[in-house]
């Protein structure tokens, strides 16, 4: 059995990395089981009004019956489109602005105060405005998602590009590299891990933007359904929609995480 860590005094009891990982996973599963168990038992015993908190099995049932219906799929598609458009466009805008700010000091000097000022505003206040400007349908939600999502990408792109080590820039200068060559061969790859962290945040923010936009005024989408079921006191369905939204967020995050590992293979991981 390979014991890699012999220096650490705490590892007197030999335990492999795999064993530790298995133990942690077991604890996670146990916690999940306890929470779901309580969720099932507490409303059933009448300790909480089932209208406020329906039993877990009711939520599962609601989820199962919802997802197989055509109308649900339509609402799902509407929101997913908003999220994806908001995420992709927000990321693209954030990248473009971040690059512009990092590459042209004059642009940064002029626009940075506005950028910071804009970020200080809680973007949710724009939601009613966007509906007035862009209408009741998807456009206003996509704009909302973009506005919330682009900022972390912008900041991380700028910071990443500005953190290129002086030595690397000097090396490129000694080779008489053009600014474009330095950008593609050194700056952008160097900034990529930092940019990617911003992109991950952008996905989460795009979900928030789309749902908030739908809350404020919509006739379709998962945010609209959430609001509707809440008003109809169909709380089991409210939870079902939340589960679907969580699944979208989680799936997207894991996809990005996977892409991150593929793309930035040289990252110096602590656990490698």
């Amino acid at each position: 059995m390979a014991v890699t860590d012999t220096i650490d005094a705490a590892s007197v009891v030999p335990r492999t990395e795999a064993q530790i990982q298995r133990r942690y996973r077991l604890i996670s599963v146990a916690i999940t089981v306890v929470i779901l168990g309580l969720w099932e038992i507490v409303p059933a015993l009448g300790l909480v009004n089932p209208i406020i908190l329906p039993q877990f099995s009711k939520v599962v049932w609601a989820l199962g019956t919802l997802v197989i219906q055509d109308f649900f799929l339509q609402h799902f598609t509407v929101t997913l489109t908003e999220i994806l458009l908001g995420f992709v466009l927000g990321t693209a805008i954030g990248l473009a602005l971040g690059i512009a700010l990092a590459v042209w000091p004059a642009v940064k000097q002029v626009t940075y105060p506005f950028v910071v000022g804009f970020q200080a505003i809680p973007k949710i206040v724009f939601a009613p405005l966007f509906i007035a400007w862009f209408g009741f349908d998807q456009t206003s939600k996509v704009v909302m998602a973009i506005v919330i999502a682009f900022f972390p990408v912008l900041i991380n792109t700028m910071v990443g590009l500005e953190s290129v080590p002086q030595d690397a820039k000097k090396l490129m200068r000694s080779l008489r590299a053009t600014p474009l060559q330095t950008f593609w061969k050194v700056s952008l790859p160097h900034a990529l891990p930092i940019i990617f962290a911003g992109v991950k945040a952008a996905l989460t923010f795009a979900v928030i933007g789309a749902i908030v936009g739908e809350f404020v005024g919509a006739s379709e989408g998962l945010g609209y359904l959430l609001d509707l079921y809440n008003n109809q006191l169909q709380i089991d369905r409210v939870f079902a929609v939340i589960v679907v939204l969580a699944a979208i967020g989680a799936l997207g995050y894991f996809l990005l995480e996977w892409l991150d590992r593929k793309l930035i293979f040289w990252r110096e991981d602590e656990n490698r």
Binding site: P165, D167, L171, S174, K185, W266
Partner: peptide, 13 residues
């Protein structure tokens, strides 16, 4: 004229 620094300055990717 080639230049060599104190650090290797390699591109990790």
């Amino acid at each position: 004229v080639g230049f060599m620094f104190q650090a290797p300055v390699l591109l990790p990717w």
